[in-house]
């Protein structure tokens, strides 16, 4: 069982070499979209939201 050389060919499957699972692709693009939404919503110069304002609001209640 001594196998001193590595046969790179054997490392990667041939039939599925180009496959990207659909569920993973949805995750990938979905998270990018969510990131854009989040960035826009919570950046003071874009949405006006700020940590400080959120605090002021929370103590007014």
């Amino acid at each position: 069982m001594i196998n001193d050389t590595d046969n790179l060919e054997a490392f990667e499957a041939k039939e599925t070499v180009n496959k990207l699972p659909v569920s993973w692709l949805i995750l990938f693009w979905g998270l990018i979209l969510w990131g854009i939404y989040y960035f826009v919503s919570y950046t003071p110069s874009i949405s006006g939201w700020s940590q400080e304002k959120a605090y002021e609001e929370s103590i007014r209640k």
Partner: peptide, 24 residues
């Protein structure tokens, strides 16, 4: 600054995808 936090969090959530690339 808020914008650095927000940008960091947006990319943090995105990290699930590349990490799970290896998991999958």
């Amino acid at each position: 600054p808020d914008w650095i936090q927000t940008l960091g969090i947006a990319f943090t959530i995105f990290l699930i995808a590349p990490s799970w690339g290896s998991v999958v």
